[in-house]
Design a protein around this nucleic acid. Structure first.
Ligand SMILES: [Zn+2]
Ligand SMILES: [Zn+2]
Ligand SMILES: [Zn+2]
Ligand SMILES: [Zn+2]
Lengths: 144, 144
DNA sequence: ACTCCAATGTTATATCATTACATCGTTTGC
DNA sequence: GCAAACGATGTAATGATATAACATTGGAGT
């Protein structure tokens, strides 16, 4: 059985910090938010993140060099691909999993004999809300 | 018209270095290979890379913090999504563009009202050749 | 109590990227 | 021609991200 071991104090604090944040946080941003809890060095954060990344409770957004708490940790203990949409204006992140996207990559990998271990799927742009706000802003500037 | 301006000396050197390399190179690795050409500071590399990334002649692999020359620069002056498969053993990179993958992301974006600006699509694992070699190696270790 | 092992604490260092400012050469307007 | 404007370049310093190395602590198992 060996149910997944409970999180340690440091891991819990880091996960809480990420869960509470609305936007992705860098390791050093996490560190700053945990100084009150006694955190003093980057390694305390990175070590906790290592475990959290291993168990899938946290994801790293390579394009941002930042970390987010998983939106649905219960779901993908498995192996399915996860993708992220990142709003450049508000910093919001939407995590989604699309089996059809995975199928396409699998098809490519199959054809090439490539064995996939990890994937980085991130799209950056403007979320629906920021898009609307941007359009409204332009309209104002244009004197409409 | 304004045909795209010719590359400057620094840009040319950086692009040549990336093209000659078999694996992705970090900015500092590029710098080291160009010291003989008079390069002395990271900024010389980063500035050249900025332009090369803009024009699509070079890509950054976020998951590696490294850069590669584009495999088919003529093709995507346009806007289509590009994906990369990265072998963790030999460092090889395969650049491919799959309209079906793009269609899936577009479908998601359409549904959410998300406006895509840039994408990061990278899969890491073992290429066909390294996979075979790994299998052979295991066989040897097992005494077969 | 003793050993083992994982987590933690601490310092230093490695790696990646940008800011700030000076210089040089070309183009543009006069 | 000349000067302003601009882009590319050179150089130094700094910021931001991540890891190495080593000491210490605190159970779990014997
Ligand atoms: Zn997740
Ligand atoms: Zn937004
Ligand atoms: Zn390309
Ligand atoms: Zn390989």
């Amino acid at each position: 059985m060996t149910a997944k071991p409970a999180l340690t104090r440091n891991q819990t604090l880091v996960l809480q910090t990420l869960t509470a944040a609305v936007e992705p946080l860098s390791a050093y941003a996490i560190l700053d938010r945990l100084r009150g809890e006694g955190f003093r060095a980057p390694l305390q954060v990175y070590r906790a993140l290592d475990k959290l990344l291993e168990t899938g409770l946290v994801h790293r957004l390579d394009s941002l060099k930042a970390f987010v708490a998983c939106s649905h940790p219960h779901e993908h203990g498995g192996e399915e691909m996860v993708a992220f949409a990142i709003c450049e204006t508000c910093g919001g992140v939407w995590e989604f999993s699309d089996s059809k996207i995975e199928d396409r990559f699998s098809a490519w990998a199959e054809a090439e004999g490539f064995l996939t271990r990890t994937t980085t799927l991130e799209i950056s742009g403007l979320c629906s809300l920021c898009r609307q706000r941007a359009a409204a802003g332009e309209a104002v500037e244009a004197g409409v």
